[in-house]
Design a protein around this nucleic acid. Structure first.
Length: 497
DNA sequence: ATAGGGTTAG
């Protein structure tokens, strides 16, 4: 190799043969991810006085494919006038590494230097805006795209735009972009289906899926995965099963995403056995697959089986994430399995997920249920931010352990910090009052549901109040309260009987 | 040469 290089250096440094020689080396580095060879070639060029910046695009590409951002960035910063391809390569690297802000910064520098952005640039930078929630800037760039005539021609740009508006919750604008495309491809349609699903428009998602199939666009595993969520949310078993058939017909039955979503669809439709069948047919189970199965079993009160599946998962050394931990904890919580809960807490600490808000809420819940309010409170106090579900769990913990005044105290603290309580909060704090016999406090809270928070008292809230009044021996007032409800529930009468 | 969509939880 060395001698070949010497030979090439003997030629004029800019000769096209030398040029092609380096191009072929760098291309190979990019394919093999061979960073050592890339550095060697780079060094060689420098040493021989080869004008290597002329190959800057290739060098940057090679370095980025090897994962060596810093090397790539150094070349990039050395280039007096980087080509738009270089800018795009750097920007797309930052997007792929979820360093969206750096991508945006680079884009701004690019504009400042007068480099004209192309379709590649836009498809990347729109994703960064979506990530960072930069609504105004996203809109501005969309406007510039339209002026440049790039708005409705390129499918990559189109789906990036649809995805961006979807992430901003602006479905009408996403649809407007979508409608500008005569021919639609699978990614463009999937982006909008996902948008409908994530914004609670499940019916529209299913209809769009049908349009797509009828229009001759072939769905893939991502499409199936998204539309199945919609079927599950609508508990439309029939549609779900039709799509199950379609998955088989088009050969996507081995794809993880569509299978996991299928499992979940059956779960939401109440067919646990179907979920188990789908699960057993999945060959390469990942964290999401396992978690979906455990979650299905916990939801349908098959906690023992859920925890056994969780143990299988641990035995398989599959990575756990916050979803897994919180779901497994919910399973333990129903059975009040304190030791198991503590052990999962240990795992959470070990992988640094003990402060995740879902995990924390589940921990507070299980410790509360197991009578360890102090441990629940320790998790609560360790939380980084205020979270409604965690506060609700903590209030429930106090309520279950007859520490009514502490529940009320926490409730007041919550109001002072400006967080709005919901129905669950009131059920918790009212049952705490009931357990502790805090009559006046209970009345005050009950009236504040409507007066201060604009909520309508639920049947649970009435039940708590009736319980509270009954315990205080105020049967007359309890009866009066019941007559105020338009359709009295039998439970209420049983409580004071 | 550089680019777009997905699955699991209160």
């Amino acid at each position: 190799m060395k001698s070949i290089r010497k030979f090439y250096h003997a030629l004029a440094p800019t000769s096209s043969e030398t040029f092609n020689y380096y191009i072929s080396i760098l291309r190979r580095c990019a394919i093999d991810g061979d960073i050592c060879e890339a550095r060697r070639a780079h060094f060689d060029m420098k040493l021989s006085g080869f004008p290597y910046l002329g190959l800057g695009n290739k060098l940057i590409d090679a370095y980025l494919k090897c994962g060596a951002v810093d090397d790539a960035r150094k070349i990039f910063d050395e280039m007096p006038q980087p080509h738009v391809v270089s800018w795009n390569a750097m920007i797309s690297y930052y997007i792929r590494s979820r360093r969206s802000q750096e991508a945006v910064n680079l884009y701004h520098r690019m504009v400042f230097h007068g480099v004209v952005a192309d379709e590649y640039t836009f498809s990347c930078v729109l994703k960064a805006f979506a990530d960072l929630g930069y609504v105004e800037e996203g809109r501005r760039v969309h406007g510039r795209l339209v002026i440049n005539g790039l708005g409705s021609g390129n499918m990559f740009v189109g789906s990036a735009l649809v995805d961006m508006y979807v992430k901003f919750g602006k479905l009408n604008e996403a649809r407007a972009v979508f409608d500008q495309f005569g021919e639609k491809d699978v990614v463009l349609v999937t982006a909008l289906i996902v948008g409908y699903v994530q914004n609670g428009e499940d019916r529209r998602a299913v209809l769009l899926f049908c349009d797509m199939v009828n229009g001759g666009v072939q769905a893939n595993e991502f499409t199936f995965a998204s539309v199945l969520i919609a079927c599950g949310n609508l508990t439309e078993l029939q549609s779900g099963m039709t799509i199950h058939g379609l998955i088989f017909k088009t050969g996507f039955e081995c794809r993880n995403a569509s299978q996991t979503s299928l499992l979940s669809m059956y779960s939401k439709c109440g067919l646990v056995d179907e979920s188990l069948t789908v699960f057993s047919g999945i060959a390469n189970r990942n964290t999401v697959t396992w978690t979906a199965m455990i979650s299905c079993l916990v939801y349908h009160h098959r906690e023992e089986l859920a925890l056994s599946v969780f143990r299988d998962m641990l035995r398989d050394s599959v990575m756990l994430n916050a979803f897994t931990l919180s779901t497994a904890l919910r399973g333990c919580s129903t059975l009040a399995l304190f030791e198991q809960g503590k052990s999962i807490h240990g795992s959470a600490i070990k992988i640094g997920l003990d402060r995740d808000r879902y995990v924390s809420a589940a921990l507070i819940d299980i410790y509360g249920k197991c009578g360890r309010v102090g441990m629940a409170r320790a998790v609560f106090d360790d939380l980084l931010g205020i979270d409604l579900v965690s506060i609700n769990s903590m209030i429930y913990g106090y309520a279950q352990n007859s520490e009514g005044s502490k529940a009320v105290e926490l409730f007041n603290m919550m109001i002072q910090s400006g967080l709005e309580p919901n129905h669950v909060t009131f059920t918790g704090v009212l049952s705490a009052c009931s357990n502790a016999g805090l009559l006046e406090e209970g009345w005050r809270l009950f009236s504040s549901i409507t007066n201060d928070h604009g909520l309508v008292p639920s049947i649970d809230h009435y039940a708590c109040m009736v319980d509270l009044l009954g315990r205080a021996g105020k049967l007359g007032e309890a009866e009066e309260l019941i007559t105020k409800i338009k359709s009295p529930d039998k439970v209420l009468w049983r409580d004071i009987a």
